Amino acid sequence: MSSLFFPAEGRDYLLDVGVHGGVQVGKWFIALYEGDYEPKEDDTAANISVRATEITAYSEGTRPEFVELAPAGGATSNQGNVAQFTMTATKTVRMFALLSSGGKGASVGKLLALQRLASPRTYGAGDVIKVPVSLTLSNP
């Protein structure tokens, strides 16, 4: 699997809140994408749904929330509370992202990070997709 990609918007948010005293986002949400798209530095919450073609064909009313564990050793994850999507149509998942808005297809808020999957996977109606997410900050 490829690594998590933090576009400028995500890095700026982390610096703004962690160093500059900016306003913290209370909840993060996970979105799935089907477009054959490579994450870019200028990806934002305003443009990613169109650029990467967000998947909204799932029965949950909103994007599932990312419920993370307390950070330790420079990392956190949603282990123990993995996000789930119940598909309502056949879709090929190629990427997921963490965004501050829970609205399906929403183009507001902040885009924290994206991950393009090493290989796409197709799911049919009724399939439940479980998305584990790990965030790690490390030195180069």
Rank of each mutant, 00 (worst) to 15 (best):
P71Y: 08
Y123I: 04
S119D: 14
T90E: 14
F5R: 03
R63V: 04
G35M: 03
M95N: 05
Y33W: 03
Y58L: 01
I55V: 07
G10C: 13
D12A: 14
R11Q: 11
V108M: 12
V133C: 09
T122M: 02
E38M: 01
K27Q: 15
L32P: 07
A31P: 00
I30S: 08
V23G: 03
D127E: 05
P132V: 06
S49H: 04
K27N: 14
V133G: 03
L98N: 03
L135I: 15
L98W: 07
K130W: 00
S101I: 07
G21R: 13
T136N: 12
A57Q: 03
T62N: 13
V93T: 07
S107C: 05
T136L: 11
P132F: 04
V67C: 08
V133M: 05
L111A: 11
P64A: 04
S107Y: 06
V50C: 00
S2E: 06
G22L: 10
Q79M: 15
G109K: 06
T53L: 01
E9Q: 15
A106E: 10
A89S: 12
T88I: 01
P120C: 04
Q115C: 14
E65Y: 05
V25Y: 10
T90I: 04
S49R: 04
Q79P: 11
A118R: 14
G21Y: 10
T76V: 12
A46V: 03
Y13P: 01
V23I: 13
Q115F: 07
D127P: 08
L112M: 14
M1H: 09
L112H: 07
A70G: 10
R63N: 12
L32A: 08
V25K: 14
V19S: 07
Y58E: 00
L111P: 07
K110G: 00
L99C: 13
A106T: 07
E9L: 05
V19W: 12
V67N: 13
G74H: 09
H20F: 12
T90R: 12
G21H: 11
F5A: 01
L98T: 06
A83S: 10
L112C: 04
W28Y: 13
G126F: 07
L111H: 05
L112I: 13
L114H: 09
A46H: 01
Q24H: 08
R51E: 02
V50W: 00
V25G: 02
N81P: 11
V25L: 11
G126C: 04
T88W: 04
R11K: 11
G80Y: 06
G105T: 10
W28A: 09
K27R: 15
A70M: 09
L99V: 15
T86F: 05
T90K: 13
G10V: 10
M95C: 12
D42R: 05
D12K: 08
E41P: 02
I48H: 00
L32F: 04
K130R: 06
A83E: 11
H20G: 02
A106Y: 03
T122H: 03
T122N: 09
S49K: 10
Y37P: 10
L14Y: 07
N81T: 14
S100Y: 12
R94C: 02
F29V: 08
S77L: 10
A8M: 03
P7D: 01
A52E: 03
G26W: 08
Q115P: 09
G80T: 10
Q115A: 10
